[in-house]
Simulated assay, not measured.
Amino acid sequence: MPKLSQQFLKISYIIGAIMALDWLIFKLTDYLSLTAFELLEFGLSFSWLLLLFQNLEYLARIGDQIFPVQIIKSEDEQ
């Protein structure tokens, strides 16, 4: 995607790292149950999707240009 902010990229990588760490903890230990793992992964992925939609909306608004139009009554219409 063009013009992604550095903040969005950093947050994306952080969320990805947390998800990978969560998977490792789930696979290597019995600390997390399957339900806890799924809830954590869903929460992280849903929050990332909300951030993505927010950035897409911001990028869509950048392209909008507003041109002011002034209507003047001509002398012929009187």
Score class of each variant (00 low, 15 high):
Trp23Leu: 08
Ile71Met: 03
Phe42Ser: 11
Ile18Leu: 09
Leu49Tyr: 10
Phe67Gly: 07
Gln54Phe: 03
Glu75Asn: 10
Pro68Phe: 00
Leu32Thr: 02
Asn55Tyr: 13
Ile18Arg: 15
Ala36Lys: 05
Leu21His: 08
Asp22Val: 13
Leu51Val: 00
Leu52Thr: 07
Leu49Pro: 07
Glu38His: 11
Thr29Ser: 03
Phe26Glu: 04
Ser47Cys: 08
Ser5Gln: 12
Ser33Arg: 01
Glu77Met: 11
Leu28Thr: 04
Ser45Ala: 09
Asn55Thr: 12
Leu32Asp: 01
Leu51Thr: 01
Leu52Trp: 05
Arg61Asp: 01
Thr29Asn: 04
Ile14Val: 06
Ser45Asn: 09
Gly43Phe: 01
Asp76Gln: 14
Leu50Phe: 07
Leu59Thr: 02
Glu41Cys: 10
Leu39Trp: 10
Ala17Thr: 09
Ser47Arg: 13
Ile18Pro: 05
Met19Leu: 13
Glu41Gln: 15
Leu4Ser: 09
Pro2Met: 10
Leu44Gly: 00
Asp76Met: 11
Leu39Asp: 14
Leu49Cys: 12
Lys10Trp: 13
Leu56Ala: 12
Ser5Met: 06
Ala36Val: 11
Tyr31Pro: 12
Ile11Thr: 04
Gly16Phe: 05
Ala20Trp: 11
Ile25Pro: 01
Leu28Cys: 12
Ile71Pro: 01
Ile72Pro: 03
Ser33Phe: 02
Lys73Ala: 03
Asp22Tyr: 06
Gly16Cys: 01
Ile14Met: 15
Thr29Asp: 05
Leu52Gln: 07
Leu21Gly: 09
Val69Ile: 05
Lys10Asp: 12
Pro2Gly: 11
Phe53Leu: 08
Gly63Met: 05
Leu50Asn: 02
Ile62Asp: 12
Gly43Tyr: 03
Ser5Asn: 11
Leu34Asp: 13
Ser33Ala: 02
Leu56Gly: 03
Phe53Tyr: 07
Leu21Ser: 07
Ile62Met: 04
Tyr13Trp: 07
Ile71Gly: 01
Lys73Ile: 00
Met1Asp: 09
Leu59Asn: 05
Ile62Asn: 11
Pro68Met: 01
Ile14Cys: 12
Thr29Glu: 01
Leu28His: 08
Tyr13Met: 13
Gly43Leu: 01
Ala60Ser: 10
Ala17Lys: 08
Phe26Tyr: 05
Leu59His: 08
Asp64Asn: 11
Lys27Cys: 04
Met1Phe: 14
Leu21Pro: 04
Arg61Ser: 06
Gln6Met: 11
Ile11Val: 03
Leu4Gln: 06
Gly63Ser: 06
Ile15Glu: 04
Ala36Cys: 10
Phe8Cys: 00
Leu56Trp: 08
Phe53Glu: 09
Gln7Cys: 13
Leu51Lys: 02
Met19Cys: 08
Phe37Asn: 02
Ser33Trp: 02
Asp30Phe: 15
Glu38Ile: 14
Leu39Val: 04
Glu75Cys: 01
Leu28Lys: 05
Leu28Ile: 05
Leu28Glu: 14
Tyr13Gln: 10
Met19Val: 00
Phe8Pro: 00
Asp64Leu: 13
Phe67Asn: 06
Gln78Tyr: 10
Glu57Cys: 14
Leu44Gln: 03
Ser5Pro: 10
Leu50Arg: 08
Ala60Thr: 14
Glu41Asn: 15
Pro2Tyr: 06
Lys10Asn: 12
Phe42Asn: 12
Lys3Cys: 12
Trp23Arg: 15
Ser12Ile: 06
Leu56Ser: 06
Ile72Gln: 02
Ser33Thr: 10
Glu75Pro: 07
Ile11Lys: 15
Asp30Tyr: 15
Leu52Arg: 02
Leu44Asp: 05
Ala36Trp: 05
Thr35Ser: 13
Ser74Arg: 14
